[in-house]
Structures are given as C-alpha cells and as structure tokens.
Design a binder for these strands. Structure first.
Lengths: 232, 232
DNA sequence: ACCTGAACACCGTTCAAGT
DNA sequence: ACCTGAACACCGTTCAAGT
C-alpha cells in the first residue's frame, strides 16, 4: 500500500552468504541431481541473479568442492562423536550413509581425490580411515596400501548402492529394491554359461538383498587381509 | 580445374560408420579429455555436420557407453590371450594399463557400473575378475563380495593413478612424476600432528614411487583376505 | 561492498531440406 | 538411406551499470 520507492529493482535485504549458497547448492544436488545444479536454478532459489553468486564463489568447480567438503566433514565428525570404539565399521557406515543421502557425492569424491590428492576432503577421509587401520595393528609398511584399498572399496561400493537406490526411486513407488535386484539377476541368468560361467553362477545363487550387510562383509574381507599379514 | 558440379555442398564419398564415429570419439577423449568430446569437434574431425552423427548414434550417452565398451573389451581380450596362468595380477594390470592409456575411462566405468549394473561392460569386468576369484578357491558364499571388493579397488586405484599421471603431464615436461609425488607428501608434512596424526605419519615415511608395485600390493592385500577366510 | 541482468561463447539435440 | 546446416533451448561466465 505504501506507494513510494517501489519502481527500482528490489535488492536483497540481507547480503548473500557463501554458506547460504553452499547449502542451497546441496539442496539442489539432493533434489535434482548433479545436472540439476545450475547457476540459474541456484540464483532463482536464492532470489537473485546468476552474477551475484560469483561475488562469493569462484565458479561451479569451487562450489562443488565446497558442497562436498561440507557434507563429508559433517558425516565424519558425526562418527567421531560416537563411542571411541575405533571400529572401521563406524567410519565406513558413516560414509556409506552420507553417500546414500547424497548420491552425487560418490562421483564427486572420486574425482576430487583423483585430481587433488592433497586436498582437504582427500586428507580428511584418508585420516579417518587410516586411524582405524592403525588401530587394527597393521604393520606400518602397509599403512598406505591398506588405507587406499579400504577407501576405494568404500567409495565404490557406497556409490553403487546409492546409484541403485536412486534408480529404484526414480522408477516410481510401485518398484521396490528387492524386485529391482531380482530383475538384475534375471538378466544375468540369461547369460550364456560358456561365455560367462562366473556371473551365471553368482546369479544362480542369488544376490544378497541386505546392502548394508553386504557392504560390511566387504570391509571385513579386506580387514581380514590386513591382519592376516605376516613378515614375508 | 574441372569447373562442373562444384557449387553444391560436397557429400561424403563413403558413408559414415558407427565404428568410425566410436574410434574418432576415443581419439578425441584421449587427446582432449572428457570435456573435449563434443559433437561439433567430432563432426569436424569426421568432416561432416553434427546432425550426421545422430543417424548412427542415439546421443552422447550412447557414444560414451560404446567407447567405454570398445576399450574395455580390447583390454580384457588381450589379457585372455596370455598364458592361462589365471593370475589376478594379469587382469588387474590389464585394466590398470587401459585406464592409464585412457584417463577418461575410470569415471566412465564407475558411472556405468553404478547406473547399469546389468550392462555389458559391468558384466565383462565382473566376469573377468570373478574367474580369478574362483581360481583362488574362495568359498562360494564370498564370491560376490570378493569380486566387488577387487573391482572397486582396481577401478579406484587405477583411476587415481591415471589422473595423477595426466596432471603431471599437463604441468609440462619439466615436472616429473617423482617431483610431483614429493610435492604431495610435502603438503601432508605441513599438517598438524594433533589433527592428522595418521596422514602425517604416512607422509613422514614417504610414499612409494613405483605405482604399479603399489597397485599390485593392494591386490595382494585383498587377495590375502580372501584366502584367509575360514568357516565362521 | 555487493547486486543486477543483459550479453557472449559454447553446449546437445532436432529437423526440414536436400541427395 | 544418409547427410547438411541452420535453429532451439540451455549452459557457465563476464561485466558494465547500478546501489
């Protein structure tokens, strides 16, 4: 009703924050996936123009790095807050769950670990996993190898789980996880036993439907290799 | 000099092939990286228009899948041609080398394995690794877990190696691998020992400079876990 | 200091028109 | 059947102009 000072383009009342931008980006990534994070969509959600974001953030790459960092730090500090049992399961499941909540995270993490091995996220994850390796009484000469093996397995397996889950959800509420898994094994069962004897055999024995248990079994399997080490 | 029939736009003499397109795409990916594969750049290299490609290929996604398939099948069949020693090292190194030659391969593979678990590449890789797991006398109940663990480690570690190598190359011929690795450990050595005791300890003992040996050590470590398994 | 929004160069994809 | 090339809708990024 007050009719004065209205024609000029409204400027935002409170200044934009880097934090706000990162959180909006995470929301967009969770909702619309990796391709959904757009400077236009982001600026619309923040009620501003595309150019405004560049005042606080260098570009899309930095935004992705910041979003990844934000989520991973939260996930790992949550784990650290638990009892000091020092189990690999805790940190493994912490990352597993974070990746399940944010399916865009796994590709981002592998890319950032590859392209920036000394970066913040890389260091945090390596440290978190490595401490459990240390607690496992692994000989010092195997520290790097053991931590790498665990890290790659965790990111790979968790990423696959998250992608599967996202795919099932996108198929609509009529499809559930088990039905989808069965459809995958069904395809494998049509494979020729001459060409693909192993895949056929695995499909015939049926895939485990409990993904968390499956995931942890892999962790235990690798851990068994770490502790089985003698001096040789 | 012959001045007749010259004004109409020249059509290509021999028809375009799907195979030609895929090979050109691989060349472009190898040369210019993932972002270098463009329908415009591709059509220029093939001396045609962007639209022509769509007659043979559904879109960029299918092209990427086909290129990945092409490279992986070649790498795996090469390994199969060797002596029937049945060593995991052979297939692991086959994939390691293929990924080193084609750095775009690792992200592509993890994406395709995640989003299409019953797809052609996924099945081929799973089968190739799985056969070695079988040859290792792993109990059937661990087949899937063991093969998954090995697969994720191979792709993750090989991808990181390839990315590092590509980064070193892009830094120019004055930088070599060892100097780069040292610069990474140098950064880690500046980490606070309170916050990052493990990463510091690993940096202080120095990273191994032989990546293939490092990679194979990881394979052996996981394999040790597979065979250490008892009935429990 | 911080924001606006038009503009630029570049994508993947489509499609009427040609041969 | 296969190709051409303009056109469309969409990107990330820049930047003069504003407050």
């Amino acid at each position: 009703m007050t009719s004065r000072t209205r024609k000029k383009p409204e400027r935002r009342p409170s200044p934009l924050t880097r934090e706000q931008i990162i959180e909006a980006a995470i929301g967009l990534l969770d909702t619309a996936g990796e391709s959904g994070l757009t400077f236009r969509a982001l600026s619309e959600r923040l009620a501003t123009g595309p150019g405004a974001i560049y005042w606080h953030v260098a570009g899309k790459g930095e935004l992705l790095v910041a979003a990844t960092d934000h989520v991973v730090v939260a996930a790992l500090s949550e784990v650290a807050g638990a009892e000091p049992t020092g189990r690999i399961h805790d940190v493994a499941l912490g990352l597993f769950d974070a990746i399940e909540r944010h399916p865009w995270l796994a590709p981002q993490l592998t890319a950032q670990i590859s392209h920036n091995p000394a970066g913040s996220v890389t260091t945090c994850i390596f440290e978190a996993i490595g401490r459990q390796v240390y607690a496992l009484d692994v000989p010092a000469s195997s520290w790097f190898t053991a931590t790498s093996a665990l890290m790659h397995y965790i990111l790979g397996a968790a990423g696959q789980n998250a992608a599967n889950l996202a795919l099932v959800r996108s198929l609509g509420p009529d499809t559930d996880r088990d039905a989808y898994m069965d459809s995958v094994t069904a395809i494998w069962k049509q494979l020729s036993p001459q060409e693909f004897p192993f895949a056929r055999a695995v499909a015939d024995q049926g895939l485990d439907h409990d993904d968390r248990a499956q995931f942890l079994a892999g962790i235990d399997l690798i851990a068994a290799g770490l502790t089985a080490r003698r001096t040789d």
